[in-house]
């Protein structure tokens, strides 16, 4: 992926508000992530846990470590990346869940399968993804906040900047969405119980 293209598209999208730029950007980001993933898969590594960790990691670092891009542009870039990371993680989780279902496994601990550092042991990504999709239907802004904070790891301030809303709003959206998602995941009986 040519770094120049991405930067240009970012500027178009974030500064000129060009919706088409975003449409062009999305596949580039996704391709980059997939390319990195492919490189990892081709390398003959035998420890799948380690491999997947490294995959997500490197992809992530590659995406954000663009020193020639100003923060605000990088922030928009994060916005795209957050969606992609969500998609990659959840796809990975779904395929694992499909494999394991036959073996009689109950709720899959995805982070274990992925070995993703920083993820809690008991978040079910597939269930979370479904719940987020539900949430998006009646409150897309909230769904976005979760995506940016949880999948892209943005702080409240960073999220506010990407979404052009106030940090106080991000905070309110975050805490209420978190409660709703938690209830949703527990209601479906998939999420693991909360910590005591």
């Amino acid at each position: 992926m040519a770094g120049q293209d991405v930067t240009g598209l970012l500027l178009d999208w974030s500064q000129a508000g060009n919706r088409q730029a975003l449409d062009a950007l999305t596949p580039l980001v996704y391709d980059e992530l997939r390319r990195l993933a492919g490189a990892y898969l081709r390398r003959e590594r035998h420890d799948h846990t380690l491999q997947s960790t490294a995959l997500v990691h490197e992809a992530y670092l590659k995406l954000i470590d663009q020193r020639n891009v100003k923060w605000q542009n990088r922030a928009h870039f994060f916005g795209v990346a957050a969606q992609m990371i969500r998609r990659i993680l959840v796809d990975h989780a779904r395929s694992h869940q499909a494999q394991k279902r036959g073996a009689g496994a109950a709720a899959l601990s995805l982070d274990e399968a992925l070995g993703v550092p920083g993820a809690q042991k008991d978040v079910n990504l597939v269930a979370l993804d479904d719940a987020l999709a539900e949430l998006e239907k009646f409150d897309p802004q909230q769904s976005r906040v979760i995506e940016l904070r949880y999948f892209a790891g943005l702080s409240i301030e960073e999220t506010a900047e990407v979404m052009s809303i106030s940090p106080a709003t991000v905070k309110r959206e975050w805490s209420t969405a978190r409660a709703w998602l938690f209830r949703e995941l527990n209601r479906t009986g998939i999420a693991a119980p909360a910590e005591p």
Binding site: Y60, L89, Q120, V123, F151, L181
Partner: peptide
């Protein structure tokens, strides 16, 4: 739910 949620989602999915 909020009371029970503990650290739910507080750590990002990846670093």
């Amino acid at each position: 739910a909020d009371e029970d949620a503990g650290e739910f989602l507080n750590q990002p999915a990846i670093e």
